[in-house]
């Protein structure tokens, strides 16, 4: 029972981790909670569905297509709603603008697709396996493998590539980075693009795994992923992975051993506890107040 729940928790957690990465990268660079990120995840799930059912692409290509579409969406959102505010408005204004985008996108999808949950057609043959007391499906394995590939790829890109270096420079000190000749706007766009693509992948996989997608799926998932990012230490990429998976495990365990009626409250209770006890999160660094 325990190992079974642990596996389920890790599967759920890996989707939180994929979304949390977007929050953490954006926050690391522009110190903004991108509230619309959960909606990008939701759009990713719907884009995948569209590509599979209407266009008739195989699921692998649909996944890539959804990621590409959300890259574009993320960049557009940043251009339209955040960039005009950057530098001249308070952080409060930017945050409120982000909430605006989030509401706009989720209701836009309500108008496009209606509020009823939909689901992906049976495109993947799911086989179940048994290992001791633990039952797992091929789908779970695929999700875990894809998540791992994406996260390792991200880590490599941030560590090794030129743009990754620029991203790290911007998250250290965006003004200094600009002075060193880094095109800050491009780095920010790129960050939004990468974060959104990861969220889209998470969206498609969760929609298939739970066999449901609906326009408001992003709101709660986004908030929980943010909690995960904070749990791991906001701004830290490994932190988002650890935080996401821990949150998934805690949520599943909470439901299994405590009560299912409080499922949605667990993430927030953890968030509040973390912020009070260890605001820098599990892997984050303490920030010195600048005067």
């Amino acid at each position: 029972m325990f190992w079974q729940q642990l596996l389920n928790g890790i599967t759920l957690g890996s989707s939180y981790a994929l979304i949390a990465l977007g929050y953490t990268m954006v926050y690391g660079i522009v110190q903004l909670i991108n509230f619309a990120h959960g909606e990008i995840y939701m759009f990713g799930a719907f884009a995948g569905l569209f590509l599979v059912t209407v266009v008739g692409l195989p699921i692998g290509w649909a996944l890539l297509g959804a990621m590409a579409f959300c890259m574009l969406l993320g960049v557009v959102v940043e251009r339209v709603a955040y960039r005009p505010l950057r530098g001249k408005s308070s952080r409060l204004s930017a945050l409120i603008s982000a909430i605006g985008v989030s509401i706009f996108l989720s209701t836009l999808m309500v108008i496009i697709a209606g509020t009823n949950p939909r689901n992906y057609p049976d495109i993947i043959k799911i086989s179940n396996y048994q290992l001791g007391a633990v039952q797992f499906s091929s789908l779970q394995i695929i999700i875990l493998i894809i998540s791992a590939i994406l996260m390792i790829g991200l880590e490599l890109m941030v560590r090794r590539s030129r743009i990754g270096k620029a991203m790290r420079a911007c998250s250290q000190d965006i003004e200094a980075a600009a002075l060193m000749g880094i095109n800050v706007n491009r780095v920010i766009s790129f960050t939004f693009a990468v974060g959104s693509a990861l969220a889209a992948a998470g969206g498609v996989m969760v929609a298939i795994y739970y066999n449901a997608l609906w326009p408001y799926m992003g709101t709660m998932a986004g908030m929980k992923a943010f909690c995960a990012a904070v749990l791991g230490g906001i701004g830290s990429i490994p932190g988002a992975m650890v935080g996401g998976i821990s949150l998934g495990i805690m949520e599943i365990m909470g439901v299994a051993y405590l009560s299912s009626s409080y499922k949605d409250a667990i993430a927030f209770a953890i968030l509040i506890l973390v912020l009070i006890i260890r605001p820098q999160g599990l892997l984050g660094q303490k920030i010195v107040k600048k005067v």
């Binding site: 339209v80 709603a81 005009p84 408005s89 409120i96 603008s97 605006g100 985008v101 706009f104 309500v110």
Partner: peptide, 14 residues
């Protein structure tokens, strides 16, 4: 209505 609320927030902030 809600879509309008959302857009309103963004436009106001800008």
């Amino acid at each position: 209505r809600l879509m309008f609320y959302g857009a309103l927030l963004v436009i106001l902030m800008i």
